[in-house]
Amino acid sequence: MSLFSRKSYTFKYSLFGIAFGFCFPVFSFLFDGLFLKDMPFSVESFINIHQLNPLHFIIDSAPIFLGIAFSFAGRNLDKVTEVRQDVESYNEELLQQNQIVTQYSHELQAQSDKIKEQGIQVEKLFSDVQASVRTAERLQLALLPELSNLKAAFEEIFVFYKAKDIISGDFYWFRTITLEDKEYKVIIVADCTGHGVPGAIMTIVGYFLLERIIEKEKIVKPDKILEALNEGITEAFTSSQASDRSLKVREGMDASILVIENEQKIYYAGANRPLYFKKPADEAIQIIKGSRAALGGEQRKKEKIFTLNTLDYQKGSQFYLFSDGYPDQFGGTDDKKFGSKRFRQLLNESPSESMSQMHTEIKSAFEIWKHETSQTDDVVVVGIKI
């Protein structure tokens, strides 16, 4: 607002000061000229009174000085008014901002309540999933052979079994089968594709296929078991909609199968897995390499051939069946794989022939090597002394 606009206090106070200032010359003329000197009321008298008394010239300046003085007062009042208007405008803006903030606050609170509710739902879902996985773990462990049965079948035996997650994609299987007056002790270590839930599903498939192949169909030679297991896995996961590649299951498993016949012969066959063994006369661990073929998975035109290996039974011999989870574990000072060579050294350098002590050393070496590194894969190692 302009200082000298008609609405401003500066303009109004200036006019009031000028008008009030005119009162002084008028009253001084009336009092001094007309009342004291008895002069007639005329312009000539007004001029004469100024000549007689020059003080009237000073009094005549009263409208100017009072106009200026009152204009300063009006100007200050205009500034106060302007500041008050600015404050009121600012307060209005603050009120609007406060309303917006309050609205946002309500929206954020609503979103927070929604997120909190979703968090509760997720937590409940996670709890339900955890409970289901724990149940699956108990079911999976229930399918594994009881250690007491294994100890009754062999002179000494240990099992180092450690899942990467709660449930495992590795498993071991054992049965004693009597066929044509011969007793066959069949022990198997299998490593399914993946770990966690997918791997666990594969272990269930493998378990019941082995039940059918060995217990019902009475197939006891390791190479034939692998052939039947490969066929069973392939059939189990062959979709009727074979043209749809998204439905094709490429998962499978690797396996080691050791069969002891009447404490006379030992048979071994492996699918992508070796057998480590040490006879009483051996100074170091011996290796039988498994066939370079996995069980199940995507089929190729080339036929899978599993080689049967035969060993003489010698009392005191040691055999080690294991998944790749142990040698593939990362750790150590350089964060490298434990490796097959280091694993064999561990077996060779053990000062004890006791499988129980070997179990302790294998478990300890794994934990020391892994240290704070996360577990790479599921692990199972079975050591047998006959």
Score class of each variant (00 low, 15 high):
residue 1 M to H: 10
residue 3 L to F: 13
residue 8 S to R: 06
residue 12 K to L: 12
residue 19 A to D: 03
residue 23 C to K: 07
residue 23 C to L: 15
residue 24 F to P: 00
residue 25 P to N: 09
residue 29 F to Y: 15
residue 32 D to W: 11
residue 33 G to S: 15
residue 35 F to P: 02
residue 36 L to V: 12
residue 42 S to F: 01
residue 48 N to Q: 14
residue 50 H to C: 11
residue 55 L to E: 11
residue 63 P to N: 09
residue 63 P to Y: 07
residue 65 F to E: 07
residue 65 F to C: 06
residue 67 G to N: 04
residue 70 F to T: 04
residue 73 A to I: 15
residue 84 R to L: 12
residue 85 Q to V: 07
residue 86 D to Y: 10
residue 87 V to K: 14
residue 87 V to Y: 12
residue 90 Y to C: 13
residue 95 L to G: 10
residue 96 Q to F: 08
residue 98 N to W: 07
residue 110 A to P: 01
residue 112 S to G: 15
residue 114 K to G: 08
residue 117 E to A: 15
residue 118 Q to L: 12
residue 131 A to P: 02
residue 133 V to D: 00
residue 133 V to T: 11
residue 136 A to Q: 03
residue 137 E to G: 01
residue 138 R to T: 11
residue 142 A to P: 00
residue 143 L to V: 04
residue 146 E to K: 14
residue 153 A to Q: 05
residue 154 F to A: 06
residue 162 K to W: 05
residue 164 K to Q: 11
residue 166 I to D: 07
residue 170 D to L: 01
residue 171 F to P: 04
residue 178 T to M: 06
residue 179 L to A: 08
residue 180 E to C: 03
residue 182 K to Q: 14
residue 183 E to L: 12
residue 192 C to R: 03
residue 193 T to N: 00
residue 198 P to T: 10
residue 199 G to F: 07
residue 200 A to K: 05
residue 204 I to K: 07
residue 205 V to T: 13
residue 206 G to P: 02
residue 208 F to Y: 15
residue 214 I to C: 08
residue 217 E to V: 03
residue 219 I to C: 05
residue 225 I to C: 04
residue 226 L to H: 01
residue 231 E to C: 07
residue 231 E to L: 10
residue 234 T to W: 00
residue 235 E to Y: 12
residue 244 D to I: 01
residue 245 R to I: 09
residue 248 K to Q: 15
residue 250 R to E: 14
residue 251 E to V: 06
residue 255 A to S: 07
residue 269 A to M: 04
residue 270 G to Q: 01
residue 273 R to H: 10
residue 274 P to C: 06
residue 275 L to R: 01
residue 278 K to H: 07
residue 280 P to D: 05
residue 286 Q to S: 09
residue 292 R to L: 08
residue 296 G to S: 06
residue 303 E to R: 10
residue 305 I to T: 10
residue 311 L to W: 00
residue 320 Y to D: 01
residue 326 Y to S: 02
residue 327 P to V: 03
residue 328 D to S: 12
residue 331 G to L: 07
residue 332 G to L: 01
residue 340 S to I: 14
residue 341 K to N: 10
residue 345 Q to Y: 11
residue 351 P to W: 04
residue 352 S to R: 09
residue 355 M to W: 05
residue 356 S to G: 12
residue 356 S to E: 13
residue 357 Q to E: 14
residue 357 Q to K: 14
residue 358 M to H: 09
residue 361 E to D: 13
residue 361 E to M: 06
residue 367 E to Y: 05
residue 367 E to Q: 13
residue 368 I to E: 15
residue 368 I to W: 05
residue 369 W to P: 02
residue 370 K to P: 01
residue 374 S to W: 09
residue 374 S to Q: 14
residue 375 Q to W: 06
residue 379 V to K: 04
residue 385 K to R: 15
